[in-house]
Nucleic acid binder design. Structure first.
Lengths: 200, 200
DNA sequence: ACATTTGTTAACCATTTGGTTAAACTATTT
DNA sequence: AAATAGTTTAACCAAATGGTTAACAAATGT
């Protein structure tokens, strides 16, 4: 009997395995097992490990990009963008804890491949945001700051805790519960910190 | 003719390969090639891939830990610690760009193994630092803040740029040169940002 | 000078791994 | 219902990979 969602099951299983173990560490057999199908089906629907990986990567990138684009392209003020990004991004990543690390890892390991995405239309483009910063400085809302440094601070403060979970939790000696409650606190702390540092 | 530094060469090559590709992606043959020796030598000096990996991991951890310990255990003020850590850590990582990512990645993939290190004596211990923060709050130097959040901010702001280089550079469209000069700027920017946010 | 220990190599081995094939099974079309 | 097209499986394959072996070379101790 045909299961019409086999292809979906494969992708779901692939997402799970690839995001946890990366391209190099993932095993086709493990994906097949997790999807509860024969390994040959992987090649029937996605012809190779590389192709399957690309499907997973694309999915991850497309899930991640809107958060950045909200900052880059919405009509909100800079302060609002910082507040809303922090909140929605932390919530998002708490639901998808392996995603940022996966993206970062595979982009680092595979720069040429990643450039395909950064060159495409779904790729976030910081141009409008840079203009907005310039305008708000002009208007006397913001101190004269470098938009790139602001963005880097924002991404660092929100993402690092999740990318470096193991190291952070090891060094600071945090259990699961403490870590989570700290992340909730950070939804407030981070915007406060950043906005205070840039508001005139 | 015997080369008395073969073992060193192996470790150097292993560091290079493991740090770039991780445990799963590294190949014993590639390490042998980079060390310009026969693959059997790897097993002669380090008996398995796992053991060789552990030597590399230990070396990386021991190179990294002092930076944290300087913050945790030196006699400087909190402000000085922030300033000095940022400067020395960014300089250090610019010389060892693969190290933070390697540590983070392998700790995430191998929590039980990592706990061996976090339980050991070389592992940084935040206790003294927490006490110091409490004291400086008491003395009216600092606002009432959570030391864990301060440390997390410090680590995030300094480390993320290097761990997520590819993603950051892709999103912000930075070339090598711009990235480096931004990192130099951050040696000043980060302490400024953090100190301003905690000084009373 | 000789024996012993240490270092090094080429060839080999077993297992893992991504991928293929041919046959069987299921659904759809005619 | 027969033919056709699509789906699934078990068995298989070749290459890659971590690891071993046996013979050889170099250094070291006696």
């Amino acid at each position: 009997m045909k299961d019409q969602s086999t292809e979906e099951n494969i992708l779901k299983a692939a997402i799970s395995v690839f995001q946890k173990k990366g391209m190099a560490g993932a095993r086709m057999q493990e994906i097949a097992d997790e999807a509860k199908i024969n390994k040959a089906m992987l090649h029937y629907y996605y012809k190779s490990k590389q192709k399957l990986f690309e499907a997973v990567f694309r999915q991850a990138f497309e899930k991640f990009a809107p958060h950045i684009n909200q900052v880059f392209n919405s009509d909100k003020s800079v302060f609002e963008k910082i507040t809303e990004f922090t909140d929605s991004y932390i919530s998002f990543v708490m639901e998808n804890p392996y995603l940022p690390n996966f993206l970062i890892q595979e982009i680092n390991n595979n720069p040429e491949f990643a450039d395909l995405f950064f060159g495409s239309e779904i790729a976030p483009n910081p141009l409008r945001f840079k203009k907005q910063i310039a305008e708000e400085i002009e208007m006397g809302i913001l101190k004269p700051i470098d938009p790139k440094q602001l963005l880097l601070n924002l991404f660092s403060l929100t993402a690092f805790s999740f990318v470096g979970t193991g190291l952070v939790r090891g060094i600071l000696n945090l259990d699961e519960k403490t870590f989570k409650s700290m992340m909730e606190e950070r939804k407030i702390l981070i915007p406060e910190l950043l906005i205070n540092s840039i508001k005139k």
